[in-house]
Amino acid sequence: MKPYRYERSEDVSGTISTIAEEPEGAFLAGGTNIVDLMKLGVMSPDMLVDVRRLTPDDVEETEDGGVRIGAAVTNSDLAAERTIRSRYPAISEALLSGASAQLRNMATTGGNLLQRTRCVYFQDTTTPCNKREPGSGCSAIEGHNKNHAILGASEHCVATHPSDMAVAMTALDAFVVTHGPDGERRIPIEELHRLPGSEPERDTILEHGELITAVELPPTAFFSNSKYRKVRERASYAFALVSVAAAMDVEDGVIRDVRIALGGVAHKPWRATKAEEALRGEPVSEANFRAAAEIELEDAEPLSGNAYKIPLARNVIVRTLSDLSEEGR
């Protein structure tokens, strides 16, 4: 790990100007991912700006009846927050299925969104990786790719995004509020993370020095009927093979509205808009859920080791929607 300078600013604008002047600077929040990656030599910032005390660490109601989550709210506090549990249970469930209690006590909302991929080649500086070292090649395409993407990948990168929370927030139409050198912006979470394309080194659309300050959730009533289902290789403390976050509004056996997002399948939390489209206005039935899942997964392109994710994603979508349709009645 390279020596680095530790800084802490008193306010957001000061922090942003500090880091704007330091091209190799990075933000430090809970540290659960960046400290890990610094030890591996995957990230080597010259400077860390500690932002833990800088952004709000509470959850408050917004004017439109939604909620605003401060970027510094820890994963465990957010999971335990009453409003989240009752109005957006998928987010609470997603958080609780992620990492361990210790890590959730450290990790923050903002930091969670910016987790880097768990691709084993990205994490190993002795192997080629376009995300870590642009132009060096992708080791996963012809290598160990059991945990890699089936949707939206490119010839340059097949990594997946590891966050559980972000998948639930993607399903629930969240907005990410940022402050950067160019001021404040409010980004639909779906647009925050990128597909790899020819620039896999860029996980998100954020500019250098742009700080996530909050996540906002809309007041949509039926999000109280939401859930998160994660499939992993052991019962706890493991990254997702595939996960599904979904919310459903059912009336008289008909799907009035639905949200679906997938984790573990792409470079970003994958909003299943095609499946949603196929389901709106349709009657609740396992056959319809299955058909919708298959429409979404039509474009899936498996690698040598991850074709299982297609039936797995399909089955988990069907199951999650079935559970929601029963609970939502």
Binding site: V120, Y121, E233, R234, S236, A238
Partner: peptide, 14 residues
């Protein structure tokens, strides 16, 4: 390549 305890799984308590 899966040379850590996040990728090389041993059982958890659960």
């Amino acid at each position: 390549v899966n040379h850590d305890l996040a990728e090389y799984h041993i059982p958890t308590n659960a």
